[in-house]
């Protein structure tokens, strides 16, 4: 009630000038309204704790599973207390949507953003329009979510302020980061066991891929193309992390940002043996790559090893990372991963 005291002091000044009264009254109403909205949420208590920022996502997991209320905190360190397992989750992060469905929390999801296109069940849900990764706040609020999952920091901050229990998940840049996210979402939704099981199964498949490459010391030189102006994924990105696990020599090694634009000369000089096209849907193919000036004599082009990959699979740290790494392994090492055997489970 500190705010209320402060408010009365502000109002005291108003008698100096009668004209200010309407403005002051309006301000008072506004502040009151904000306070009401902030207190209006009954299913959860939002407590901002800057000191908790250091605690990682995984530590939010309580010892006794499936017991509510429980407190979890996202990557911004803001702790939220959930009184019961959320039943009206809104996920505006395509990766998190995949994870929620993968750990059996799909039936608790009420709506998703328009980029959440997997699994099919997610596409059947109401979709929110998204601009610059930010979902329409009015429609979002109108859905009265009991848990919002977002990867946009600004949106998380806004909805913390609106009293909606909001879990901010920074987009993971490693496979380990995805495991942390899975466990955190398991904890928030009451699917701790499913989350652990999913992590174990994914780990098993990823390890199986890495196992088959145990004798590889220097993998092929790979260029992972995000678009035809030569944006790519450096080792500091999620894609780059998977490529590193696959022991390839990434052309973008040594770049300063996770998603750098490379100079064409550097790509040609590196002479990649495999080119992975995440922009196949935008018309790029072996033919268009071979037609680029200076690219035709490249090893990958000469050997026909320019392969389109599904960007929803490779670029999205979500519930299908095992599929993603198997797909990449098959594209990069076709002799070690024949198509038949990789279609497992």
């Amino acid at each position: 009630m500190q705010e209320a005291q402060h408010l009365s002091i502000t109002l005291d000044f108003s008698y100096f000038r009668p004209l200010r009264r309407p403005a002051a009254a309006f301000t008072a109403l506004l502040v009151l309204g904000v306070l009401l909205v902030a207190c209006g949420s009954d299913s959860a208590v939002v407590t901002a704790s800057p000191t908790a920022a250091a605690s990682s996502a995984a530590t939010g997991t309580p010892a006794a599973p499936a017991e509510f209320p429980r407190t979890v905190s996202g990557s911004d360190g803001v702790a939220i207390t959930l009184l019961a397992p959320p039943q009206r989750i809104v996920s505006v992060s395509p990766g998190a949507t995949e994870v929620l469905f993968a750990i059996g929390a799909g039936s608790q999801v009420a709506a998703v953003d328009r980029y959440s296109n997997y699994p099919a069940a997610a596409q059947a849900l109401p979709q929110l329009d998204t601009y610059l990764d930010t979902a329409d706040p009015e429609k979002l609020l109108a859905l009265s979510p009991d848990l919002l999952v977002t990867s946009t920091a600004e949106q998380a901050e806004q909805f913390h302020g609106l009293g909606v229990p909001t879990l901010f998940l920074a987009i993971p840049t490693t496979i380990e980061g995805v495991y942390d996210e899975v466990r955190l979402l398991g904890s928030a939704t009451g699917h701790d066991g499913d989350a652990e099981q999913f992590v174990a199964e994914t780990q098993r498949r990823v390890d199986a891929v890495i196992q088959r490459l145990s004798d590889v010391t220097d993998g092929p030189v790979v260029f992972f193309e995000l678009d035809n102006t030569l944006y790519t994924a450096a080792p500091g990105s999620f894609i780059g992390n998977m490529l590193s696990l696959l022991k390839v020599q990434n052309v973008a090694e040594g770049a300063r940002s996770p998603y750098p634009q490379l100079t064409a000369e550097a790509v040609i000089a590196a002479n990649p043996e495999v080119i992975l096209l995440a922009d196949g849907a935008y018309g790029e193919s072996l033919e268009t790559v071979a037609a680029r000036p200076g690219w035709s004599s490249m090893s990958a082009v000469a050997a026909g090893r320019v392969i389109a990959v599904d960007p929803d699979l490779t670029n999205r740290p979500g519930g299908r990372i095992a599929e993603a790494i198997e797909l990449l392994a098959q594209a990069i090492y076709p002799d070690r991963f024949p198509p038949a055997s990789s279609a497992q489970r």
């Binding site: 000369e265 040609i268 000036p293 200076g294 004599s297």
Partner: peptide
Amino acid sequence: PASWERIVFDIR
């Protein structure tokens, strides 16, 4: 190397 020629004439 062939790539050098490509770099000089088709890129630089």
